[in-house]
Simulated assay, not measured.
Amino acid sequence: MNLIVTFSKDLIFKFIRFGIVGISGIFVDFGTTWLLKEKVKIHKYVANSCGFLLATLTNYLLNRYWTFQSHDPKAFQQFGKFFAIALVGLIFNNLIIYFLNDKLKINFYLSKVFAIVAVSLWNFFANYIYTFAA
């Protein structure tokens, strides 16, 4: 496992693709949550969890085949790594929002933007080094 990340064109293209996949994940997450909460009338935390899980699954598949072009036959184990990193990212996200919004009184949505940027960097490099390492 190469722990030193060299900044190459390949890494930059992967980061851009990872960002595009992440944006699609936001739509999957918010769309699923809204649909389940507002239309199906499922409890907001259940709806939110379903949105998170579906976005994580679609993000994994898109990142596996498009961003990192992985052909690792151990897809289930690879998804487990991806999911674990996503859960750590979710914890980071909530902690950042809590600190910025609740403690420093920064606007919630501005706090969320900071959290998304920080967690996106965590998610990309953790997946690059651990989940999709060649």
Score class of each variant (00 low, 15 high):
T131F: 05
V40L: 14
T67Q: 03
K81Y: 04
R17T: 00
F7H: 08
L62G: 03
L95T: 07
L36A: 05
V119Q: 09
L62R: 02
A84N: 03
G89N: 04
N63V: 02
L54Y: 05
K39W: 13
L95W: 06
Q77N: 14
D102V: 09
I106H: 10
G31Q: 10
N127F: 08
N93F: 13
D10W: 00
T131Q: 08
M1R: 10
E38A: 11
F76A: 12
F114Q: 05
G80E: 03
R64F: 06
L121T: 11
I42G: 00
T58N: 00
F108A: 07
I97M: 06
D72W: 07
A84G: 09
N123E: 07
F92E: 02
I106C: 10
N127A: 09
A86N: 01
G31N: 11
K41M: 15
I12C: 05
R64C: 06
G89M: 05
L62N: 07
A115R: 06
V113A: 14
N48G: 13
F7A: 10
F52I: 09
I23K: 02
L62Q: 07
N123P: 08
G31T: 09
V40Q: 09
N2R: 08
F132L: 01
A118M: 13
G31I: 09
A118S: 15
A84C: 07
L53N: 04
D29H: 13
P73L: 05
T6W: 09
N93H: 14
V88P: 01
Y65N: 13
T33K: 13
M1H: 11
F18W: 03
F79P: 01
L35Q: 12
L61F: 13
S120L: 14
Y130R: 09
N48R: 12
N127H: 11
F82M: 00
V46K: 03
G89Y: 02
Y128V: 11
F27W: 12
I16P: 02
R17W: 04
F82H: 03
L87N: 00
T58D: 00
N123D: 06
I129V: 15
K103E: 12
K112N: 12
W34E: 12
Q77M: 09
V117T: 13
